[in-house]
């Protein structure tokens, strides 16, 4: 069973919030005892997904949780927006695809950087992405 011992919710509406989100994720990663490489991967994934919320959905909400299963601690982050949704999810998850002249590595890159990646999106309603990184 997964236990959540602490969580924090951040509202994302402007660029500087990306920095705030990264700093908060760093705190949670340190608390969970993630190594430096895993911490860096999680922060980078969070940076990508937070930026996407701003760019494509005009912002949204992030909640960060300290989770644990048996003896293993981890950090789970939920990114939720009420934007347009991702119409072609398979395409959006493809390396190099961008509707915005970006590098198109945010979604597929973030997926590779975390241990668990779930995405739910609906046209006209929004997108919810949940990622988890476990301490090794």
């Amino acid at each position: 069973m997964t236990t959540v011992s602490r969580n924090e919710t951040l509202s994302i509406s402007e660029e500087i919030d990306v920095v705030m989100a990264r700093n908060k994720v760093r705190l949670f990663a340190k608390e969970a005892g993630l190594g430096l490489v895993d911490e860096t991967k999680l922060i980078t994934a969070a940076s990508e997904l937070t930026r996407n919320m701003l760019l494509y959905a005009n912002g949204g909400t992030i909640s960060i949780e300290h989770v644990s299963v048996a003896e293993t601690a981890g950090v789970r982050i939920r990114f939720e927006d009420c934007g347009p949704g991702i119409v072609d999810l398979a395409l959006a998850m493809t390396d190099g695809y961008s509707s915005n002249n970006g590098l198109g590595l945010g979604l597929p890159g973030a997926r590779r950087l975390v241990d668990e990646f779930q995405i739910n999106t609906k046209k006209g309603e929004g997108t919810v992405i949940v990622v988890t990184k476990w301490k090794r």
Partner: peptide, 14 residues
């Protein structure tokens, strides 16, 4: 470039 940054960039495909 810090090693953790380099590892992350490569894994991202960047």
């Amino acid at each position: 470039m810090q090693p953790a940054v380099a590892i992350t960039l490569v894994e991202m495909g960047l």
